[in-house]
Design a binder for these strands. Structure first.
Lengths: 111, 111
DNA sequence: TCGTTATTTCTATAAATATAGAAATATGGA
DNA sequence: TCCATATTTCTATATTTATAGAAATAACGA
């Protein structure tokens, strides 16, 4: 991953409303939620929500899927995992490090 | 981790210069680097560097340690791992997910 | 087609952030 | 103490970003 991409992803997540949207979608799984549902749950105005969804979507952190009149957004687990890898890349000059045990990111392939 | 904290951490990393500083320190391991060395390596002006180090430091992403006239900064691996955990929390409503294999963040305890 | 609902774009305003020159502060050595 | 070096704070300027009302667009059902 390029630095520029990573900055875009981080900036997309570094905002209250967008982080809330993203986490809601992560928890929702691959099905995602329609724009209206997101707005209701998080109490965000239409225009504001649309603005933030575009940011997240441009960054590739969420994916859009049209179903009739509704647009469903869902988390893009791949993109997040790429970011996590980038942030911890080449840790400690390649010397052996104890892996941090508590973390096991998901790839969104729910069973 | 609170949402507010996560936003602060993400915002701290969501900037070219700061991301470069942070990654440089992650790669440097627990010893870290003095401010002057960081500035040299990344070609950043004094005032600018100081500004960004403060941001990262306030967020708790890096740690400062005085040694004589020098101040060494090093990555705070714990804080990063907390953030990674927060971002993937409660993935897919607790349904079983395939863990993403490629990621194994480090805790900074180099051997 | 027309009306209804879902979502986005337009627009303006308010607020936060990055940058670096110059001055100030701290530390250690002579 | 005085000097040299390391780092931070002060200051001003330029840029980016968040917000939401209102209007526009899109999709469906009657």
């Amino acid at each position: 991953m390029e630095t520029k991409t990573a900055v875009t992803l981080l900036a997309a997540l570094a905002q209250d409303t967008r982080l809330a949207i993203y986490r809601l979608l992560v928890q929702q799984g691959p099905e995602g939620l329609a724009v209206g549902q997101i707005g209701e749950r998080l109490a965000v105005a239409n225009a504001t929500l649309s603005f933030h969804l575009k940011e997240l979507s441009h960054a590739g952190l969420i994916l859009a899927r049209q179903e009739g009149r509704f647009i469903y957004y869902s988390a893009n687990y791949e993109q997040m995992n790429g970011l996590l890898g980038f942030l911890t890349e080449n840790c400690c000059r390649g010397e052996a490090c104890t892996p941090a045990s508590s973390i096991s990111p998901c790839d969104g392939a729910c069973q």
